[in-house]
């Protein structure tokens, strides 16, 4: 591992420690950051730019435990050439890393309040570090509701951890899938249908939502229906992130730069642009 670089444009080289296949198209890479002075510190919700040498660079949310600074965890779905190259790497091989970038989930603001975590598909990835933090400091929060929607039972990410979280008596965790066969005994329907089953105080609760934009729009609508104010709903968006530091403008979303002002936004800040097809 190369020394820590201070220039945000220059990637540092990191080695892959181990790899886990999460589903047919999704892979988790665990990067070795133990030699880095102080390890790799980040806040839940932040992302890194990962560079597959000679192919390209992509923004990928951090999916690991913030307390484990000696390793850095990224969960990547194959959607193109760069992600295909990154997920094709083997333990011991290297990639380029820049980051961490962006804003984080409002875990401080959520203290002493009910928490709603609504994740759809790969949206669970940037929320997982927040879940680790909340569960590690469980007594700092009131009721914790985790709601996760996947396409089918085979697409459920981090299935072992989900089972573990579900087994806890101090967390309400519900999983739903969009479609399933008769061998599935869980919930079927969109993730927003789980919101009305959650127990929370709408006057004070804080919601953290991540998933495809349409899913987030419907989740916000349901949260609003249940009485949650816009200023206590937080979303993580993704928009063509490239430089990571608010200079190139590729991720501009109205008057905000998603890479610098986001990816985690308070909904009332994003609301004017959120459902506009021109933006």
């Amino acid at each position: 591992m190369t020394p820590v670089r201070t220039e945000p444009w220059v990637p540092e080289t990191v080695a892959i420690k181990r790899i886990a296949r999460e589903s047919a198209d999704t892979t988790t890479l665990v990067l070795d950051t133990s030699a880095r002075p102080g390890g790799f510190a980040f806040k839940p919700g932040q992302f890194n730019m990962l560079y597959a040498f000679g192919i390209g660079e992509v923004p990928i949310s951090i999916s690991g435990d913030p307390a484990e600074t000696g390793e850095l965890v990224h969960t990547i779905r194959v959607v193109g050439k760069v992600t295909e190259a990154l997920t094709g790497l083997t333990p011991g091989s290297t990639l380029g890393l820049r980051g961490p970038f962006g804003t984080h989930w409002p875990l401080e603001k959520a203290r002493d309040r009910d928490v709603l975590i609504v994740a759809g598909g790969l949206g669970l990835v940037p929320l997982r570090p927040a879940i680790y933090e909340i569960l590690k400091n469980r007594s700092a929060y009131r009721r914790v509701n985790i709601m996760y929607g996947a396409r089918t039972p085979h697409d459920i990410l981090f299935a072992n951890e989900i089972s573990e979280w579900r087994g806890r008596l101090d967390v309400s965790l519900r999983v739903t899938v969009d479609s399933a066969g008769p061998d599935w005994f869980g919930h079927v329907g969109v993730v927003t249908t789980l919101v009305k089953l959650a127990r929370f105080d709408p006057e004070t609760a804080v919601a953290m939502v991540c998933g495809p934009e349409i899913m987030m729009r419907f989740a916000v609508r349901e949260l609003e229906t249940q009485g949650l104010a816009d200023e206590r709903i937080y979303l993580s968006t993704e928009r063509n992130l490239q430089c990571g530091v608010g200079l190139c403008g590729h991720c501009q979303h109205g008057n905000v730069f998603v890479c610098k002002d986001g990816p985690v936004f308070r909904y009332d800040r994003l609301a004017p642009f959120f459902s506009k097809r021109e933006v």
Binding site: G121, D178, V190, T193, G211, P212
Partner: peptide, 13 residues
Amino acid sequence: EELRVQRLDLYQP
């Protein structure tokens, strides 16, 4: 409303 979202197959890249 729920079925409209469900049929979009949102989680496909």
